[in-house]
Design a protein around this nucleic acid. Structure first.
Lengths: 212, 212
DNA sequence: ATTAGAAAGTTATTTTTTTAACAAAGTATT
DNA sequence: AATACTTTGTTAAAAAAATAACTTTCTAAT
């Protein structure tokens, strides 16, 4: 891989999954090449921007043909590190935590769901698919023993910060945060905030613009 | 409200919920004012950027004091249109749809959850909290009768596009999309994509940067 | 073989966004 | 009342990002 992949601008990182998503839809169409112009049509980004983004990582295109869809998907997978195996746990087995257990996107992106944790004795010991709900008491040891990289956090707000600290202490390098709290984490820890109510805010804001 | 709120740059809209979130945490602290410098500390944005963002909407600050936390929250609510009532339905009562029913963020942002819809006969008629799961057959009429503004979409990928089209046809003005599909919608329709696997992509991408 | 066309990759330009600097206004202190 | 201090709101400068334009390379058709 190109050495430039060491410090990819965030603005480009945000677009990579979008390219990936659209290309996947085309995987088994007749034509095996796609031009930047066509991809622009699909994604809403300009063709110029797309060529520039991709050329940041290497020369994946073929002059007068475009990009081989299969190869480009392959390259994007590598850039996004899907081939690098990552262990995941879910902390908090409430409605959202349970929904996350059933998410189908892990394997394709190199994630292995290793465990689910909760404090509620009524939940501990139950199975969601083939994943057992364990007590949060076991969480830290589990993180160390199973070399967990990422923890999805779906606990109540009140315990979010404390739980995050325990997880970091135990060795996770990233937190996929679903609580509606502004977590404070050291800057060597990756924090991906998935605060769904922010989506509601944005929608509300935009609706409002049309009425004022 | 300031007339400039008619076309707020997206980049600012994205930061508003973040200011809001951090200010809410401070609501009942002793000091009732906060400086842009302090808010910068909390949010990670520069104080300069914060002052500029806020001044886009009006003069909310007080020289040598800072911003009144309560008033600023109030102003942000107005800018984001939380005072404007919006009707919401959830389409798809699977794990994620059910988790969304239990989300606590609606009221505060001006949303009223009016209904949940699914195709599965085993689910239809059941209650989640006090919300009845209805058949998707009834969906379009319901949207018209109840003047639904926003639909949260948590249906399987295969029916995502078709369902979106039905909803738009019936009159929703925004879709809060949780499917992992690249939906195509007319450009007068608001589309807020909440594709959780994009979060996984970003985390994976960033982990990968440290290992190459 | 030559020529026209297509589309990537690159460079230059423009636009947007962020940061830095500063002036204005208010506060507190002597 | 005068002075020093804060912190906003604004203006200027810098940096980043996006677009447009251009060059190169490859393909295909005559």
């Amino acid at each position: 891989m190109d050495k430039r992949s060491e410090n990819i601008p965030n603005i480009i990182i945000r677009r990579l999954p979008i390219y990936y998503k659209h290309l996947k839809k085309l995987k088994n169409r007749a034509k095996e090449y796609i031009s930047s112009e066509e991809l622009a049509e699909l994604t809403g980004f300009s063709s110029s921007l797309i060529r520039k983004d991709l050329s940041y990582f290497g020369n994946f295109g073929r002059k007068s043909y475009g990009y081989d869809i299969y190869c480009l998907l392959q390259e994007l997978s590598i850039i996004m590190g899907f081939n690098h195996p990552k262990n995941l746990i879910i902390v908090g087995a409430g409605h959202l935590g349970q929904a996350l257990v059933h998410n189908k996107g892990y394997e394709e992106r190199g994630y292995k769901l290793k465990g689910v944790f909760d404090k509620n004795p009524k939940l501990i010991g139950l199975f969601l698919d083939d994943i057992k709900i364990r007590s949060v008491e076991e969480m830290c040891d589990f993180v160390k023993e199973e070399k967990i990289d990422i923890a999805a956090l779906t606990v109540p707000k009140g315990v979010a910060q404390k739980t995050a600290e325990l997880l970091i202490e135990a060795g996770v390098i990233g937190i996929w945060d679903f609580t509606e709290v502004a977590l404070k984490v050291p800057n060597n820890i990756l924090l991906e905030e998935q605060h769904i109510n922010e989506g509601l805010c944005k929608l509300s804001c935009k609706i409002n613009q049309n009425f004022n």
